[in-house]
Design a protein around this nucleic acid. Structure first.
Lengths: 352, 352
DNA sequence: CTGTTAGCGCCTTCAC
DNA sequence: GTGAAGGCGCTAACAG
């Protein structure tokens, strides 16, 4: 039993307006679609008055049904609590505004079945395209999208088996930039700290670029440390092991002599976890004891005084929509990658 | 000229499925709506097969048009960069999920005309209700909403002239709690720092409660400081004036004697601005020199070691949707206020 | 149990 | 210039 919502009053329809203006629906439709030149000034005035009187607002759903397009695009975000996502979103919104789209924002909250359900939902609402910041577990959940499905463009990470546009950070360049910075600042033991999501392409690319960059500096050693942020126990365990190593690496030399260790966080979430821990262990001025650099430049980074690589988040979002727009219009068929450069923001934590 | 998007292929319709299954549209519709008991097993099997073969997905727009309701609700957020909003959003999403709604998230980005445009847009998409975290400039821009318009419930702040449900923090209780905490910790000079938005009800309530709470403690002095976050110059100026006063207040006595000043930030954004400045001026261990307490408990608060009042953000969002749901069903007509308690999280910055 | 029919609100030929 | 008629994809009475 499906009764219309009783909360809101019934809205005026195009027929109501036509009757009120003493004309046919066609003229109203023409008025709405800006075909003003075809209407006599008098009729036009009557229509305007009727619309005003009835507080008429055309029903987008009905228009969409008829036209076959509704100007809706979906924006599927893996994790809104990540400042990166919110920043990208701002670019997306700006571009949508400029191109006349309405973005439907869907938040998967890091849950794979949420991601699938939202994709399904967006499909049934017949959005014209989707921008996907995927969890990236597998292309299977992304089946409704891409070739043969809804036009899509990926943000930050690609998904295996899904060939379509992708826009994100130049991971290779950014990681190289950061690594070189650390080496130049005299650190000779670099620990690249990542989350255990090997299926996320950006995560993999950054790690690979890190090790590749190090090949240039034989005197510098580097290793990867995996941090499981989801599991508190495991996290604590890894962190204390890391503490021990850090102490051992630093101890024999004191201050400016010997091995100088730097932590390189693969993203802002990792950096926050590290910062929290270090802050707790060494006190508020931990940055002076332990060097930390991070990809992503969240608000607290300045507060904590850590060096970062800032991503061109706004541009990433904006470009993603532009790409999608072209796909929707069928102007684009082959898959493109768009990688944008990051910017190094140097702060106290790596100034030695 | 409105051509359908050329990017995506045409999707199967209910008629296609009917033809494929060798039956009428009605049976398909019945199947879709779960009236399974009315279908013979054979027909049902044929329908299932046809749907599978055609990868059919019912068009929600068309269903909505016919039924008069589309299960869409709008969520208008004033500022997504405020962690508070994202947290509330998570509650909203959970409740929507539970009640079968799809939230359309709209981000006004602190711009009044964005707010108006989104409200207009939500109206034309015939959402069944809206949850509004308003900029709150005036009820005028919120006209399409509330009495006579779309069912609405307000979050965090009420809007003058708009009588409808409102759910948010118990500002009175939270502010009193915080004030008492500061007094008990021995601070006798409290500065309540706010943004200059006097039209935002929560901002006003907090300030009023602060001064009211202080009446209980004649030995403690309190004043309001207004911080203009938007204007860098003005901000810098206010902050340096504040520095001077802070120095003067603390100077004559040293450490634990005499006047002890505490900063009370009315929200997380103010706290961040203060923290940034203090950090810059006094170094990473500024918390030991200047006491700071904030309403809102953003992620960096722990890092900075500041005492906070954590809002029940998730519950606020969840309750808001429940209220809205009742309104949509017409079960509720009078306006209700729902205020939820905050929780004091004590950290280093006020431990003396 | 199943199919036919008439719209939901709007746009779009096609006539007048 | 203007309007009537048909249909977008779906649901909801009605019949059978």
């Amino acid at each position: 039993m499906n009764t219309p919502p009783s909360g809101a009053p019934r809205r005026a329809t195009i027929s109501d307006v036509a009757r009120e203006a003493g004309t046919g629906k066609t003229s109203i439709s023409r008025y709405l679609n800006g075909e003003l030149s075809v209407l006599s000034p008098q009729l036009r005035a009557r229509i305007e008055a009727a619309i005003e009187r009835l507080d008429y607002q055309p029903n987008q759903m009905a228009r969409g049904l008829k036209r076959g397009r509704n100007r809706l695009i979906g924006m599927l975000v893996a994790d809104l609590t990540n400042p990166y996502s919110v920043e990208v979103l701002q670019g997306v919104e700006a571009a949508c505004h400029a191109l006349g789209y309405m973005p439907l924002i869907c938040h998967a909250a890091n849950e794979v079945d949420m991601e699938r359900r939202f994709l399904q939902l967006l499909t049934t609402y017949r959005v014209e395209g989707v921008i996907v910041n995927a969890l990236g577990v597998s292309e299977e959940t992304l089946r409704p999208v891409g070739e043969g499905g809804i036009p899509a463009v990926l943000v930050d990470r690609s998904v295996e088996g899904l060939v379509t546009d992708m826009v994100g950070l130049d991971n290779q360049g950014a990681t190289t930039l950061a690594t070189r910075h650390l080496v130049e600042r005299g650190f000779d033991k670099l620990w690249f700290v990542v989350q255990p999501f090997e299926h996320i392409s950006s995560r993999r690319q950054r790690e690979a670029a890190f090790h590749q960059a190090l090949e240039q500096y034989p005197q510098v050693s580097g290793r990867t440390v995996v941090l499981e942020l989801g599991d508190a126990d495991e996290l604590a365990q890894t962190l204390s092991a890391l503490d021990a190593e850090l102490d051992a690496a630093i101890a024999p030399h004191e201050q400016d002599a010997g091995a100088r260790v730097a932590l390189f966080a693969a993203n802002g979430l990792v950096a926050l976890a590290l910062a929290r821990h270090l802050n707790q262990r060494h006190g508020a001025d931990w940055q002076k004891r332990v060097a930390l650099l991070s990809i992503d430049d969240p608000e607290w980074a300045e507060l904590a005084g850590i060096t970062t690589i800032r991503q061109p988040t706004y541009d990433i979002g904006y470009r993603a929509v532009e790409f999608l727009h072209q796909r929707i219009d069928g102007e684009q068929t082959s898959a493109r990658d768009c990688v944008l450069p990051g910017e190094l923001i140097e702060r106290a934590s790596t100034a030695r």
